[in-house]
Design a protein around this nucleic acid. Structure first.
Lengths: 249, 249
DNA sequence: TAGTGGTCTAGACCACGTG
DNA sequence: ACGTGGTCTAGACCACTAT
């Protein structure tokens, strides 16, 4: 048989399309520029809109594109590096000076079962402090910090009109009275629940990087935080402060 | 107008489907169990197959399901925690004792432009060491370590038949002669290129967690590694060794 | 060869942001 | 009101795996 197969692995259309678009983005478009709409792009490449969308979805996942309903598809800026680790060497409690997070509210919703298990408490016996993190005016992450009520007694409920943000700060203050023994972080891929999606200005199900941190004190887990970062726009950075400052010289 | 709107936000079908399926997975299925095929599931829920697939894709992204062409859809085991190194503990060169990675090959492909920029060398003036990482018999990550050729001179090329794995080890040995000044890690979401996808037993475009590490020595970047972890099965862990051992007591 | 998930099509309608 | 991306349908065919 003279039918040289030549590794004829038929590449999916959307995959090839993604490559073509990606190269076009590098050479012919600049950040913030708006692309032709999906119907026109599909026609131009001679594919169905669904196929074109498969390629766009991948590019958005990789942080190359940004799509907004009612507006259009734009070329995304490079991902921003957000520092997650090494709050300058030694670990520190959330809310310590230099912390990039801003306390927002004190919530009453019960903790997820997985968090309660880590803390060794009931799902309702916790403080839940909501915090947010912004970079360049854009919110990039949303966090809930869970602290057992046994460690930090109920805060100034009697103050009446004290609003959520103040109660949140009070819990953090109480937390700082403990000595931090260490911490452990995990990072995994998740999809935004409805409430986080709204906060991060994304649709439900948008890909997020979930950073879970356990804070240790007195030989037990004293707090657990679950932070949700926009996966499309963020690059999490676990910097070694010493090394970085060394490089600056 | 008496038309109480009642927050009538019509939840997308696939989103509701995902919730229903997720609960069913918790209560009615066990790990490794095989689900009915997509056509039957779609019929059972009264939706088009594409809609059902949208829900399954999300669940796979979250590590709840595993789908294999020609086989079926199975319930995935919980994500495995893979240790990626402690933020605060002593840093170590790749290939140091206790390293979870296995050297595989010495590659000749040029480094990506972004890596060459970090190293401050030309794209061809580097060693590229391919390594792999397995957990429980399953490959979970694939890595390429780039080292400037100026730091580690060309290795035993004259040895002729010396195979890639040995050359890879030789480069690592040379690297260990330098004193490690520090390191910096970043984590971001990516999609698997064709070669990585094959190695990780996934389809091209599968979601991966990309861990980029810069190793510093002599006040410069002495090496850069780009590791690609399966995002569906992995939970990256940045453990604080001290704290964890403290908890064991 | 049979059955699975993966790709692709050509439509339709909806929700949202902007003018 | 209009144009955008988001959702959904009902099909078809393909690539892969197991038998």
């Amino acid at each position: 048989m003279g039918t040289m197969q030549l590794e004829t692995v038929p590449e999916p259309k959307y995959w090839h399309l993604k490559t073509v678009l990606s190269e076009a983005l590098d050479s012919e478009f600049s950040v913030g520029e708006i692309l032709p709409n999906e119907r026109e792009l599909a026609a131009r490449f001679g594919v169905a809109r669904a196929t074109l969308r498969q390629a766009l979805e991948q590019l958005e996942l990789e942080g190359r594109l940004q799509r907004r309903r009612g507006v259009g598809t734009t070329v995304a800026p490079p991902r921003v590096g957000v520092d997650v680790g090494s709050e300058s060497g030694p670990h520190a409690w959330p809310g310590a000076p230099g912390d990039a997070w801003q306390p927002e509210d004190h919530e009453s919703a019960p903790a997820p079962a997985a968090v309660a298990r880590l803390l060794g408490t009931g799902r309702d016996e916790v403080h839940a402090v909501r915090r947010s993190r912004t970079t360049g005016g854009q919110q990039v992450a949303s966090e809930v910090l869970y602290v057992p009520a046994t460690l930090v007694p109920p805060v100034a409920e009697g103050d009446g009109a004290q609003h959520g943000s103040a109660r949140a700060r009070a819990v953090l203050r109480e937390l700082h009275r403990l000595e931090l023994g260490g911490q452990e972080r995990t990072v995994e891929l998740g999809s935004a629940r409805a409430d986080d999606a709204r906060r991060l200005d994304r649709l439900p199900g948008a890909p997020v990087l979930v950073v879970t941190t356990r804070y240790f004190a007195d030989g037990r887990t004293a707090a657990v935080s679950v932070a949700t970062y926009r996966a499309d726009t963020c690059r999490l950075s676990f910097g070694d402060a010493d090394a970085v400052s060394l490089m600056a010289s």
